[in-house]
Every structure is written in structure tokens, then in C-alpha cells.
Amino acid sequence: MKKEVKLSFWDRLYLPAILVGMGITIKHFFKNLFTPPSKRYTVEFPERKKDVPEWYRGLHRLNTRDDGSVKCVACYCCATACPADAIFIEAEDIDDLDESYPREKRPKQFIIDLHRCIFCGFCQEACPEDAIVLTNEYEITQLSRDEGLITMEELIKTPKKKMD
């Protein structure tokens, strides 16, 4: 291939350009050397956490009512909407029906398989009761597949979003 670029004599000497380039790199070097670690681009994770935006979709949470019972009415909307089939719900009847606050069902088991979940947020969109929400919690790791199945008790304990 014929290159149309004509190099001037100064360019063909190479060395001036190399010196300019070295000037640039050393500028970066000293800039980073004298920047305190907290101000560098790299966020050193366990010590410093990155702030995630409000819309970030992290670990699920099951909201509760004021009396501490789960808001979920076991309608299966979330499980139906879930594209990853990550939600397992077993419903149960509520026997002593309160006339002033009519509810008939609640989940007996509510299990989310975090290893299947793709954190799409469809469950949150589908829920008619605002029971299931995705929080900003992103430190979700497990050492085995079984630990990835999180139950209702754990889902209730997920910390709320900061802004809520």
C-alpha cells in the first residue's frame, strides 16, 4: 500500500517525536504518582466502594407492611414475568380473614435463585403490590449453588435503597 503521508525531515528524525511522547508519558506518571489513591481513576474495591446510580438493579428485597408482614400476596405475577425462571413461590391461605383488610394469600415459600436471575427488574415491574424491589446492593457472592437460593427471610432483610 502506498501511503500518501509525506513525512517532513523533522518527523523522519524520529527522535524529536519520541521525546515529545516520552514527555507525555512522564506527565501521566507524575500526575498519578502525586494523586492520592482516593482520587485516582481506579476504585480499590474492598476498601472503597463505588457509588451506584439510583436505577441500579442489585439484590432483591421483599418489602413489608408496617406490622411486619410481607407485602407479597403470592399472585405469581413476578414469577410469570421472570424471563430467567428464577422465582419460586409456594402460596398459602390466610385463614383468619380480616374484613377491613382483605387478603387471602401470602407466600409460604419465596425463593429466588440468584444464579439464574439476570437482574432485569421485570419482577419489580410486574408486582401489583410493590412487594418485590431491586436494591442497590451489589456485593452478592456465594460459595456454593445452594447459597445462591435465597429465601423469604433473607429477602426481607436486604437493606433498602439509600434514597428510600
Binding site: 508519558t25 512522564i26 501521566h28 506518571f29 498519578n32 481513576y41 481506579t42 480499590e44
Partner: peptide, 10 residues
């Protein structure tokens, strides 16, 4: 470390 600093890494 020098390489890292030159490339804005740690």
C-alpha cells in the same frame, strides 16, 4: 508500577 502509573492505573 511505573507502567501502571503511565497508563493511569494503579
Amino acid at each position: 508500577r511505573g507502567a501502571a502509573f503511565i497508563q493511569d492505573r494503579v
